[in-house]
Design a protein around this nucleic acid. Structure first.
Length: 612
RNA sequence: CGGGGCGUGGCUCAGCUUGGCUAGAGCGCUGCGUUCGGGACGCAGAGGUCGAAGGUUCAAAUCCUUUCGCCCCGACCA
């Protein structure tokens, strides 16, 4: 097999293990690693984290949304996992490992098989007997089964179990490299309690774990209120890594500390303009005016907040579908997640033109509350409250009504909050303005309640001798997504900038000229010294690579601490250059080692600020 | 699933509209030499079923059909 002769692995350092701190050891000379960098971004990389990882061999695509995690990335992923493990174990959680393959029967029990298959996100297959299996996208069914076969008494509760495992979801559109893959690494945890109050306590404990985990990873993040979505349950929060390229928009208020995913966010919206003098409702021809912008041109004196739009939705429930018309102030936008929740629907989607014509008798753009087709349910966003003498669609092509009053011309429809918050709205309570920022969801925690424990009969006997379903919570961290988010948040023109706690290596020794005796000796000495202290150190010992290329590569892979061994090596002088910040200093070799020690001591000794 | 785009050495791409020399460039890679603190230079090389199948033609990377894969927008998304 070995046509090129066996390569001897780098011999392990002599003597006993030098550190009790768990550390990821591997060959640390660049000449011993498979290390290739590309000058150009790959054509299919859309975001920086993906492009940079693909250019450096961190990540290689095998199929859409399916990747090889290269050795460098794997080191980072293991460090993230390590932090996750330590914080979960410290909080009293137990690690286990569940199967990736799961039988259909379990998913029938919870009632999720059809839904997940119809949504198309479940990878499923048949074994040779024809039995159906899926590759687990999540593990509520398995964990609930695992626990129920052992759970008998309240004395066994509370209990939190977790695993770190590859998850499979046939995402309709995988994208952005590690950010949204079809196969990805996730930590999922599940708590079991005897009471709702216990569930909330477990949830709060896990919230603290998450805060510690992301803080220790060196990330800037925000915990936000979230919509629990299809998984169900009463309360949930997402942990968002702050990044402009994030897929999620979040509403935050610096003053009050309020933070919520815009899917869920609510606030106090600017009041509508004062009521105009009463005039009778009348029809007005509005040829071609399909949008509020068109109408503003036609009626320049009418404030947009006195135009009420009526938006038609096709709504799907489990057993039926229907059409719902939703009214909303002209200067506001609707929030389909809130709407679906209010209607208890599986899904809402904008009605197509055909459905609009059938429901209103008019071309799209002229829908209104008066004279809607039979069977169309009418509701209104709370932004319509207090709007008087408004304009609305006439349900007749090229026609709108003007000077319409709720109560006089038609009853005000059932009104609730279906609105999307906007920058400048006040936080709930009316203090402090909301800003809209973006984030990458790296963690999500849920209070599940008894949804799965009831469906799957995960019960125990309480103190009074009664049989009760367990109160559950579930908690996820996208391990591989954390790595991508770290780079989305921390990079510059030249490349990645890893936060020290999760960097593949903590220190990079860049040797300018391999073969120069003084440099060879000093670089080796530094490498030995750092290695001996248990520091993850990488040594760029490549010969025949120009200094420029070495610096470019160093910037690209973003090892946070850098020591350059160059022309002053014979004087034991090296250049100290952190990846971020750019300030460099000429120091002697001992000082460089001391600075590494200090930087590492700072992250391990830094008190964890707990952000609410 | 709807709309759009792309598949040509390891990477980024040209060539295709209007079929025709031996299929090109830059980067990367190998060897030799000169360089050596921000992707150096010279010389000599290696490396390609032009995504796949079928068809049209004297002749197909190029035209036609089918198919597979990938990317973007949307819908979707514990």
């Amino acid at each position: 097999m070995c046509t090129r002769g066996a390569r001897v692995l780098q011999e392990p350092p002599a003597g006993p293990p030098r550190s009790r701190v768990p550390r990821i050891s591997a060959p640390m000379r660049l000449t011993r690693l498979l290390f290739v960098t590309l000058r150009d971004d790959p054509a299919d990389a859309e975001v920086r984290s993906h492009a940079l990882m693909a250019r450096t061999g961190f990540l290689q695509k095998v199929a859409a949304g399916i990747y090889v995690y290269g050795p460098m990335l794997w080191r980072t992923l293991r460090k993230i996992e390590q932090i996750v493990r330590e914080e979960h174990d410290r909080a009293g959680c137990q690690e286990l490992l569940m199967p990736a393959l799961q039988p259909r029967e379990l998913w029938e029990e919870s009632g999720r098989w059809d839904r997940y298959v119809n949504d198309g996100i479940l990878f499923h297959l048949q074994d040779r007997k024809g039995a159906e299996l899926c590759l687990g996208p999540t593990h509520e069914e398995v964990i609930t089964t695992f626990v129920k076969r052992q759970l008998q008494s309240y004395k066994q509760l509370p209990l939190t179990l977790y695993q770190i495992q590859t998850k499979f979801r046939d995402e309709i559109r995988p994208r952005f490299g590690l950010m949204r893959g079809r196969e990805f690494i996730m930590k999922d945890a599940y708590s079991f309690d005897a009471t709702p109050a216990g569930m909330k306590e477990s949830y709060q404990a896990m919230r603290a774990v998450y805060t510690r985990v992301f803080t220790r990873c060196g990330l800037r993040f925000t915990a936000v209120e979230a919509d629990p979505g299809a998984i169900g349950g009463s309360g949930s929060e997402e942990f968002m890594v702050d990044a402009d390229t994030g897929e999620d928009a979040i509403a935050v208020c610096r003053e009050t500390g309020y933070a919520a995913n815009v899917e869920k966010a609510t606030g106090v919206i600017p009041p509508p303009p004062a009521a105009p003098p009463q005039r009778p409702m009348h029809k007005e021809p509005t040829p071609g005016a399909r949008s509020c912008e068109d109408l503003q041109r036609m009626f320049p004196d009418l404030p947009i907040a006195r135009m009420l739009k009526t938006v038609l939705y096709r709504v799907l429930w489990r057993d039926r579908e229907g059409v719902v018309a939703v009214m909303c102030r002209g200067d506001r936008a609707l929030n389909e997640v809130k709407l679906a929740n209010f209607l208890d629907a599986l899904k809402v989607e904008l009605a197509d033109e055909k459905l609009v014509r059938a429901s209103t008798g008019a071309e799209p753009g002229f829908a209104g509350p008066i004279g809607l087709g039979a069977g169309v349910r009418l509701v209104a966003d709370r932004s319509v409250e207090g709007v008087h003498g408004f304009l609305c669609g006439g349900n007749e092509t090229d026609t709108h009504y003007l000077d319409v009053w709720f109560g006089r011309d038609l009853p005000q429809p059932e009104t609730a909050d279906f609105g999307q918050v906007q920058a400048g709205d006040l936080a709930p309570g009316g203090q402090g303005a909301l800003e809209i920022t973006r984030g990458i969801e790296v963690g999500h925690i849920f209070q599940l309640g008894t949804k799965y424990s009831e469906a799957m009969e995960c019960r125990f006997v309480d103190e009074q001798g009664r049989t009760q379903p367990a109160w559950m919570g579930c908690y996820g961290i996208g391990i591989s997504r954390v790595a991508a988010a770290a780079i989305e948040q921390n990079h510059d023109e030249a490349g990645m900038i890893w936060p020290l706690p999760i960097a593949p290596y903590s220190v990079l020794i860049v040797q300018m000229k391999a073969g120069d005796a003084a440099q060879d000796d000093l670089a080796a000495e530094l490498h030995e010294a750092l290695e001996g202290e248990g520091v993850d150190v990488l040594w760029d010992d490549r010969p025949k690579v120009s200094p420029g290329a070495k610096f470019k590569d160093a910037d690209l892979i973003g090892i946070p601490l850098r020591i350059v061994v160059g022309r002053d090596a014979s004087q034991r002088q090296v250049e100290w250059k952190p990846r971020r910040g750019g300030s460099t200093a000429i120091v002697d070799a001992e000082e460089a080692v001391a600075r590494v020690r200090a930087a590492l001591a700072e992250i391990s000794g830094r008190p964890l600020e707990v952000r609410a």
